[in-house]
Amino acid sequence: MSAGFQAVQWNGAKIRYDAILLGLVAFYLAGFILIAASLHPPTSAAGWIDLRIKAFGSCAFLMLSTVLAIGPLARLNPRLLPLLYNRRHLGVATFFIALAHAGFMVEWYLLESDIANLAGELTSWADYANFPAGFPFKALGLIALLTMLVMAATSHDYWLGFLTPPLWKAIHMGIYVGYGAAALHIALGAMQSNRHPAVPILLFALFGTVSLLHILAARKSAALDIGDDDSDGWLVVGAASDIPDGRARIVAPVGGERIAVFRDGRILSAVSNLCAHQNGPIGEGHVVDGCITCPWHGYEYRVEDGCAPPPFTEKLATYRLRLRGNLLEVQTAPLPPGTNASLTLP
């Protein structure tokens, strides 16, 4: 959290996540190269480099698709939230795999011909009119790689604070541009030259799945947004006893930010559904030892007043609550962050 900065904030869960990630990547790359080399043994040094380009390129696209699928998957099924927890390391690893893919291609040019041809190829502007075959698809790969570089280089929490969360988030939305560029890079490159049916199948299956998941998750969020009438400034949350202990119910005022109403035993409290760290969906987290814990990166806030426990200083906006009979209601106007507005049930 923000009491100082370390290189990486490791913990047991993150180390396990990264070990599994590294294992899967190594398994994929070794499997790809072994199988492909036994089916069609490369006959030259350039052939071996080509194989590595393919193994690392397809691995990068698979990883990038996974990175983008995790967000909507976790929204659709909260049991998948652990995947989200350390998605940042998956993203940075994806960048390095893509970088290796591009590096092997540079190695190939160094071996085969003059490296200056590569720069010339990317700046033969007339070629950009060729479609679909003959388009300089490497330029699209370069765009994808550069967007991933920007994401990886600003992935440290420091940059989140420096750039401010809204700007940071806007920059990181650029990953969708990168994903589109990577998909086109494959469609105009490998799909044109490499007649193997696995290329279009991989491309359309992954791109289609990622798009579908985003549509499904957006529909689920939209369903949540159909709030109840809040014209008097108060919104019905439901029966207090319907909120599971230690969890929240998320409500959405018409046109306003979502509100997460938590219950911790007999204490009820309402906070903004946006985590002060990265705007994570705090209402999808649960209460651990009296603190609301964000499912994204484990940022904690006291249930009563939305303040992070010392030495941390983050605060969430809170909301006033009232009981009308058995029915819990929340006022849609936020209170200053850190205001204690909790309610204790009798």
């Binding site: 100082g4 900065f5 370390q6 290189a7 990486v8 570089l149 280089a153 420091y158």
Partner: peptide
């Protein structure tokens, strides 16, 4: 904010 050497090194690419 206190910063370790590792954190400083990791910030170089973003700052470039």
């Amino acid at each position: 904010a206190p910063m370790t050497l590792g954190a400083r090194l990791l910030l170089i690419p973003g700052a470039v």
